[in-house]
Each structure stands twice: as C-alpha cells, then as structure tokens.
C-alpha cells in the first residue's frame, strides 16, 4: 500500500501537531510534554480529572476523545506502543483539578506498567489517582478470565460515561465506579480482513490470505479465535452479534448502545451494511437500541475490518451517555 509519510520516526509528532492545529478550539499540547494532549478547558477546578492514553495508530482514539465533558488529558505513545510513564504522569498533572484523577485505559502489558509507575509518581505530588482497566474484547480470553481480556472500542463508552459523571461534580470514587460499570456493560469483537503495517517496519505484521477473515482479531492484529473463509456481510454481522451477546446475558427489553467502528481501511458504507444487519439481529434478541455510532471511532492503522461493541444501559448510564460532549472523535 502507498502511504503518506515523511520520516517514519516523526509520524507520531506530526500526527499530534496536525491534530492540535485542526482542533485548536478543543485541545492544546501540554507545554511541558509534546506527547500529552489536553482539553482546552482542563484542568477544571474541583472536578475529577479524566486521563487516558495508549499507542498511536488508533486515531481518532485516543487524542480524539479529549474535550469538554470527556477526557481531560491524553498520553500519546509511539505507533502501537504504550506512552511512557512520564507522559501518563504529565497527563495526570494536566488533568488534576484538585479532586483526584481517574485514569481510564485499556488492558495491555505496557500500559499497565507505565500507568502503575505514573500513579506512584503522582502520589509523590499528592495527586489522588484511581484506575479502571478496560477489558471488553470478548475473544481475547474466556469469560472466566475476563481480567485478561484486552480493552478495545468499549473504552470510548467508558470515557464518555466517566467523563460525563466527572462533569456532574461526582467524587473520584463515584467516577471510578461509574466508569467500571460502563466497561463491565461492554462487550466487543473484531473481524479482520486485511493486515496493517508499521511504517518503520515496512511490511505487514501478520497476513490474512485473500478470501479469508480472522474472527476475534485484536486492535494490533493479535490473532483471533477463528480463521475462516470470508462470508457475506450478513453472515459476518450475525457472527459478531452472536459472539458479543452470547457473552453477555441480557434480559429482553434491555436498552443498549451500539458502536460499529472501522479498523482503518474499510469503507464507511460497508460499516453501514454491517450495521443494517447488526441492528436487526440485536432487536431480534429482544433488545432496544437507544443509540448507535457507526464510523471510524477506533482504528488500527490501515487494517481492513470492523469491530462491534454493545453497551448494556441502565437509567444512569443512559443519562450519562446522552450528556452533550465536545471532542473531535464523536
């Protein structure tokens, strides 16, 4: 594939620079760390700060979710590589309005280590930090070992709901409990049709043969649970709904929010083709779709494929999901 880049080593800095120029009404770069993107209005005095972070290459995640009533500060890593502990620390400092900081991030080895170190360093600054680790990716581990599952697009619901809760003036404990409830209510699955390439590496980091698909693929091309013959969109949609809902025993009548994200190189129209079937399958299971999001919300460079996330709502989560937000990702 042909691509736009200068020096591969500069891609992340140039991505952040362009993003901040394009969205200067929403975000700025932290003056002390070029790998931290801060919401224009942060820190808000007396409000719990919301921080996230992760490797680059997933845009609009993670930087696209910095904004009002959302994430206050985002630590930016290299492509597919965790931000440094220093960047997480600087994001925590930038988000701190004196009421503590909630770091809401995904379950990856590097992020776990760097957040752990940043939390220790922030404690020395007297900043109270608590965390929620997203683990919504169904195929990455069995239900009995849910703590081992990766965090994927369900993180967006966790940030949205945690951010709205913090904006209401809730305490750090309340924000953490609500963000935890949001991610506990999320189940996600990915289907990959084509691989992606780190520009500095120069060749795809895995292969999917023509006419095949990887069901349960991760956000960095982690292999799925099944390598299968590529089926029709309807059959793929049925499979995705089955994987997600079979893992999550929801009573009929429950309201849900649905997010279908492209992985980078799949046309948006194909996402709507999938969504057409996904919604009817969800409704056929007796559930009601309160809100749907279809588009490129959490990508993996130029991977071909899509993810489905279903969030089970209750009154509280529904209200918080509907709070108005200003960020580039939505």
């Amino acid at each position: 594939m042909q691509r736009f880049f200068n020096n591969p080593d500069d891609i992340v800095d140039e991505t952040v620079a362009g993003f901040v120029k394009a969205h200067r009404d929403l975000v700025r770069i932290d003056p002390s760390n070029p790998r931290v993107v801060v919401a224009r209005n942060a820190p808000v005095k007396g409000k719990v700060g919301i921080v996230t972070g992760g490797g680059s290459g997933h845009e609009p995640a993670f930087i696209g979710y910095a904004g009002r009533n959302m994430v206050d500060a985002v630590a930016v890593g290299e492509l597919f590589s965790s931000p440094t502990a220093k960047s997480f620390l600087d994001a925590i400092r930038a988000a701190d309005g004196g009421a503590g900081v909630a770091v809401l991030y995904g379950n990856y080895a590097g992020d776990n280590m760097n957040v752990k170190m940043a939390r220790k360093m922030a404690a020395r600054d007297g900043i109270d930090v608590a965390t929620v680790v997203a683990n919504d990716d169904v195929c990455s581990a069995p239900l009995a070992e849910r703590e081992k599952r990766r965090g994927v697009a369900g993180e967006i619901f966790m940030w949205k709901i945690g951010g709205a809760k913090a904006a209401e003036g809730a305490s750090l404990d309340e924000v953490i409990a609500t963000a935890q409830k949001a991610i506990d209510g999320c189940r996600s699955v990915g289907v990959g049709l084509g691989p992606c390439t780190l520009p500095a590496v120069g060749h795809p980091n895995f292969q999917i043969e023509p006419g095949r698909m990887e069901v349960g693929i991760g956000h960095h091309g982690e292999p799925g649970t099944r390598l299968e013959i590529l089926k029709s969109a309807n059959e793929v949609a049925d499979d995705m709904v089955r994987i997600v809902l079979d893992d999550h025993d929801l009573p009929a009548g429950r309201e849900v929010a649905v997010l279908v994200s492209g992985l980078g190189a799949t046309p948006i129209n194909e996402l709507y083709v999938l969504y057409d079937r996904i919604e009817s399958q969800i409704v056929a299971r007796g559930l009601t779709v309160h809100r749907a999001y279809v588009g490129n919300y959490f990508t993996s460079l130029e991977m071909v494929g899509a993810t489905l996330t279903v969030l089970a709502l209750d009154g509280d989560l529904k209200r918080l999901l509907d709070v108005e937000t200003a960020c580039a990702g939505f």
């Binding site: 490797g55 890593g77 290299e78 590589s81 965790s82 931000p83 440094t84 502990a85 220093k86 960047s87 080895a109 590097g110 280590m113 760097n114 170190m117």
Partner: peptide, 12 residues
C-alpha cells in the same frame, strides 16, 4: 528508556 521510549520495554 523511561521518559522517551514507553511500550513495555521502556519501563522494564
């Protein structure tokens, strides 16, 4: 390693 590299190898 800790302030500029990140990932898993930076902290380890």
């Amino acid at each position: 390693l800790m302030s500029e590299i990140g990932g898993s190898m930076g902290p380890l």
